[in-house]
């Protein structure tokens, strides 16, 4: 059977997708949290910058972000490999959503918490890092998981930019074996599920583990 024969190629694609997703997830989490902090910062220019970023990126189709990375960036003398461009495009795009999740998480933490932290003499950064974000993050775990599941699927856009990730390889294989095309794509779908379903389960566990009694 062709799917089985192509297993090595499919697994290579799977590996690349997994790596794209994980790297972009970590980068987006960091960037998104920084942006979220900017959006609640007492310094207006930082707030504006954060807002501008979110509005711009969130309302742009991901494909366009990829286009920008692959075709526009070189004109600005930024020459990157396709693979690197894919990492950056996915991280930049996902960060906008992480930012909004983090911001809503921050808003869900009662103002008394931040006030108490200010009253013991914490700076804005300490307050955020030690008191507000740890509580905010717990309440946004479900939203973050949705974002990362979307990211996993979004990574398939990279196929359009010559990154041989799971979807790209699967499609190539399907075209090469039209008779088994459907089976091939089903195999691809299963491999995506192998990433997304466990992350949901993991998140549920995590959520229960870090839940704060109130």
């Amino acid at each position: 059977m062709a799917v089985w024969d192509a297993r090595e190629q499919l697994l290579t694609g799977f590996g690349i997708t997994l790596r794209l997703t994980l790297v972009a997830a970590v980068a987006a989490l960091v960037l998104g949290t920084v942006l979220g902090a900017m959006r609640v910062s007492p310094i207006p220019p930082l707030r504006w910058l954060g807002t501008a970023y979110v509005e711009l990126v969130r309302n742009t189709p991901l494909t366009l972000v990829f286009f920008f990375m692959v075709f526009v960036a070189p004109r600005l003398d930024i020459i990157l490999e396709f693979r690197t461009s894919a990492y950056i495009a996915l991280s930049v795009y996902t960060a906008a959503f992480v930012c909004e999740a983090v911001r809503s998480g921050i808003n869900s933490v009662s103002t008394g918490q931040a006030e108490a932290a200010r009253a013991v003499g914490m700076t804005f950064g300490q307050n955020l890092r030690l008191v507000v974000l740890p509580q905010a993050m717990r309440s946004v775990i479900p939203t973050l998981v949705n974002i990362f599941v979307a990211l996993t699927k979004n990574s398939s856009v990279a196929a359009g930019f010559f990154v041989g990730e799971l979807f790209g390889l699967g499609r190539t294989l399907a075209i090469r074996n039209p008779a088994e095309g459907v089976a091939m794509l089903c195999g691809v779908a299963v491999l995506y599920l192998i990433i997304t379903i466990p992350s949901g389960v993991l998140a549920e566990r995590l959520e229960r583990k870090v839940a704060i009694a109130r």
């Binding site: 008394g112 006030e115 108490a116 009253a119 013991v120 003499g121």
Partner: peptide
């Protein structure tokens, strides 16, 4: 200001203990 606040203790009506 943070340094000065460290020298001023505050107790709130709603306690505001760090929940986590």
């Amino acid at each position: 200001l943070a340094r000065l606040r460290a020298d001023v203790g505050m107790v709130f009506q709603a306690f505001n203990l760090f929940a986590h």
